[in-house]
């Protein structure tokens, strides 16, 4: 873990209330792996005592790219950060996704801007595969062109049918699982708990490995405060609280106990 005074290198609108923030952060950018995250101290956010965690969507050269959605006071304050502004970040944090495919075909499953860390993963995986991505509307479907350019096959589902199939991403997942090649899949997923749970149940039922990136309210981000724990079951059947920030955020589907 490093602490770095990053410099805002720019930010832009990605539509639908989503923004892309670019931070010059050479030490963290040099070592961050897919699925890891940074803990950012938002300047000018008076009264806030905690940092905010963000997954990495791209790391290129000195720069880290973050996708965020305007959801609260913190992200609204982030909108106003101008180029050249200094921002304190901790990172890289967490374990990240395993990159070893063991001769399996990667299938990425994303909900909303959960697609962000999966794009960085797609860049680093040795094999190309397919992305199943879901969101509420067409505006919540991000990075499709980028994935296509990378050579990935993309399938979309939206709740209102404004892009791709109408329904949840599980519709696409069930279709995939009905096809013969599904037996060679390994899943990597990031999104809401409901989606992760639905994927986990299906992957386990089919005996397929799945890696899930969990999202829990975080305090310190470094494993000290024990706020972001999740219930994990080990192979001997015993259960314990593990820290999403330090022991995760990526866990195997078979380990996660859903509350």
């Amino acid at each position: 873990m490093n602490q770095e005074e990053a410099i805002i290198a720019g930010q832009c609108d990605r539509g639908g209330g989503y923004r892309e923030l670019v931070l010059a952060s050479p030490r963290i950018a040099a070592t961050v792996r897919p699925g890891q995250f940074v803990h950012l101290r938002i300047p000018d956010l008076h009264g806030a005592v905690l940092r905010r965690p963000f997954s990495i969507y791209r790391a290129a050269g000195d720069n880290l790219h973050i996708l965020y959605k305007n959801v609260g006071l913190g992200t609204t304050a982030m909108n106003r950060l101008e180029e050249g502004r200094q921002v304190s970040i901790l990172g890289p944090l967490g374990n990240g996704f395993p990159l070893e495919l063991n001769d399996r075909q990667p299938v990425l499953v994303a909900g909303g801007y959960g697609v962000a860390p999966l794009y960085y993963l797609a860049e680093k995986l040795r094999e190309k595969g397919r992305l199943l991505v879901g969101g509420r509307t067409a505006q919540d479907i991000l990075l499709i062109d980028e994935f296509t350019k990378l050579g990935w096959q993309v399938e979309v589902a939206t709740d209102d049918g404004s892009s791709g199939r109408r329904g949840m991403v599980t519709v696409l997942l069930d279709e995939l699982l009905d096809t013969a090649p599904a037996g060679r899949c390994v899943f990597y997923a990031c999104g809401p708990d409901g989606m992760l749970k639905a994927l986990a149940e299906r992957a386990l039922a089919h005996g397929l490995p799945a890696w899930l990136s969990l999202d829990k309210h975080m305090g310190c981000g470094g494993g000290a405060c024990l706020a972001c724990v999740t219930r994990i079951r080990t192979d001997d059947g015993s259960e314990s609280w593990e820290r999403v920030c330090k022991d995760g955020p990526v866990f195997a589907a078979r380990e996660v106990v859903w509350e």
Binding site: G219, L226, A227, C228, T230, W241
Partner: peptide, 8 residues
């Protein structure tokens, strides 16, 4: 074990 979540 401590408490259930949310804890903070």
């Amino acid at each position: 074990e401590g408490n259930r979540t949310p804890r903070m």
